[in-house]
């Protein structure tokens, strides 16, 4: 019911855009608040429709998946959560999908953060992943199947230092249990004892630092989930093989959910994202028309 109303409303909103276009050509510019209203509608209505879009999985996401598939059960994966709640809409779905997949594959997860709120985001993602019936059935134990080492200040210096020994940077986990008393970490000295590193990053410190101070110096394998703002800057590293795969923004998250076969938030957000982009493009056209119309008027006035 709600979804049908939303579809009808979307059609009306779409038609009204044509009206705006005509008004602009006639020389009546659109007020900024109207633009805000349209963007708002472009996000709200598709969410109400509750539909998913068919989505091809791009090479960069596929590469990450293929690499993860090669890891054996029991592989130790270090997950660096370098983001905070403001970037959660893009990165949290990736993290949840990743953790669900990792727990199902029986990977051992070591969580840490270079951002103070990162490990809290991780904790939330773990709680969400645990709701999955298959994972709940595994009765995973903190300290044996996963561990949260918490946050450490020092940005890139932390990575540098972890290269010799993790324990130096994380003497205790987030439950204040000493590093040496955690079963999962018994044979984990430094990067050479983990099989893969996954980084979820919203800025600095983040993937850039993990590549320059981690991969380039200690040679481990790194996969990354980035906000869309940051993703284009990471392509050179992807091409050079310093990154094993990249999830960029909400689209990247949705593709990852698809390839892992985990229906999550990102897939349901995709339609809203598409509508919002379409609206932006239409307003760019309207804006340019208004600009040229006003210029024409000015030159005509000057004559």
């Amino acid at each position: 019911m709600l979804s049908t109303i939303a579809m009808i409303l979307s059609a009306i909103v779409g038609l009204s855009l044509i009206y705006l276009l005509i008004r602009t050509i006639q020389g009546h510019p659109v007020e900024r608040r109207i633009v805000f209203v349209y963007i708002g509608l472009a996000v709200v209505l598709p969410l109400l429709m509750n539909k998913t879009l068919p989505l091809p999985v791009t090479k960069d996401v596929r590469k990450l998946y293929d690499r993860l598939e090669q890891l054996q059960p029991g592989s130790k994966v270090l997950c660096a959560f370098d983001y905070d709640p403001p970037s959660a809409p893009e990165l949290q779905p990736m993290a949840v999908a990743f953790l669900k997949y990792a727990f199902k594959k029986d990977f051992k997860i070591i969580i840490m953060g270079l951002w103070p709120q990162g490990p809290q985001q991780a904790q939330q993602a773990i709680e969400e992943a645990m709701l999955d019936p298959i994972i709940a059935g595994k009765n995973l134990v903190q300290g044996e199947d996963w561990v949260n080492l918490g946050f450490q200040s020092g940005n890139e210096f932390v990575i540098q230092s972890m290269g010799t020994e993790f324990k130096r940077m994380f003497p205790k986990d987030n439950r204040r249990i000493p590093y040496e008393d955690i079963p999962l970490l018994q044979n984990v000295v430094n990067f050479s004892n983990v099989d893969f590193v996954m980084n979820f990053s919203a800025g600095k410190p983040g993937t850039y630092e993990w590549v320059q101070f981690g991969v380039d110096r200690f040679g481990f394998e790194l996969g990354a989930g980035n906000t869309a703002v940051q993703a284009p800057m990471m392509y050179p590293y992807l091409r050079a093989g310093q990154l094993k795969g990249l999830l960029g923004g909400m689209i990247g998250a949705a593709e990852f959910e698809k390839v892992l076969n985990e229906k999550g938030k990102a897939s349901t957000f995709l339609l809203a994202q598409t509508f919002a982009h379409a609206t932006v493009i239409i307003f760019i056209i309207i804006g340019n028309l208004a600009f040229f119309a006003s210029r024409k008027k000015k030159t005509a006035g000057a004559r």
Binding site: Q70, T164, K167, R168, N187, V189, S192, N193, D195, G219
Partner: peptide, 23 residues
């Protein structure tokens, strides 16, 4: 002292800095 996946042809065995650490 280490386990690497198929296809790998090398491994770096590095020691911990702390003398009391295992490894």
């Amino acid at each position: 002292v280490g386990l690497v996946p198929l296809g790998a042809t090398s491994h770096v065995n590095s020691s911990a800095i702390d003398k009391n650490s295992e490894g």
